[in-house]
Amino acid sequence: MEERLYTRKELQSYFSVSIFTIDNWIKKGDLKSYKIDNTVRISQGQLKEFLEKVKN
């Protein structure tokens, strides 16, 4: 089963934050991402890890 990949734009809408904020989370290492064909993608698993981290 393939894992869903989210774009920064999708996460921007989901969290109601700016792309800059998403980029900061990625740069700080809080949110892991993948670069695929010059686009940044975040896997569903990485998103779950991030949510667990900020929840605690």
Rank of each mutant, 00 (worst) to 15 (best):
I36H: 00
Q12N: 00
S16L: 07
N56L: 14
G29T: 05
L31N: 06
K28Y: 07
L11I: 07
W25N: 02
S18K: 14
D23P: 00
D37P: 00
G45W: 08
K27P: 04
F15H: 06
T39G: 00
K35Y: 05
L31Y: 09
F15K: 10
N56R: 15
T21C: 01
F20W: 14
R4M: 04
T21L: 07
T7A: 00
K35L: 09
N38E: 06
K9C: 09
R41T: 01
I36W: 01
L51S: 02
I19H: 05
R4V: 02
S13I: 12
Q44I: 08
R4F: 08
M1E: 05
V54D: 00
I19E: 08
V54M: 10
E3G: 02
M1N: 04
I26G: 01
L11V: 07
K27W: 02
K28V: 09
E49M: 14
I22K: 06
F50Y: 11
K9E: 15
K28A: 10
I22C: 10
S18F: 09
N38G: 10
F50S: 01
Y34T: 14
T7N: 02
N56A: 10
S13G: 07
K27I: 11
S16A: 09
L11C: 06
N38W: 02
W25L: 03
E49S: 15
S43W: 15
N38M: 03
M1H: 06
K9H: 13
S43K: 14
V40P: 04
I42K: 09
D37W: 11
E52R: 03
E52N: 08
N56I: 13
T21Q: 07
L31W: 07
E3D: 06
L47Q: 11
V17I: 10
I36V: 13
G29E: 06
E10Y: 12
E49D: 15
Q44A: 11
W25M: 04
I42T: 05
R41Y: 13
Y34D: 13
G45V: 01
E3A: 07
Y34I: 15
Q12P: 03
K27T: 12
L31R: 06
K28L: 11
F50A: 02
E2W: 10
I26M: 04
Y14L: 14
S13H: 06
Q46W: 15
S16G: 00
L31H: 11
L11S: 03
K27A: 10
G45P: 01
L47S: 09
V40E: 01
F50R: 02
L11A: 03
L51E: 15
K48N: 08
D30C: 09
F20Q: 15
K32G: 01
S43P: 12
E10L: 10
W25S: 01
N24E: 15
Q46S: 14
E52Q: 08
L31P: 12
S16D: 07
L47G: 05
I19G: 00
I22M: 09
I42L: 02
S13D: 11
L51D: 03
V54L: 05
N38H: 10
Q44K: 14
K27V: 10
K28P: 04
I19N: 06
N38S: 13
G45H: 11
E52K: 07
K55L: 12
Q46K: 14
I19S: 00
G29S: 05
G45Y: 08
Y14M: 13
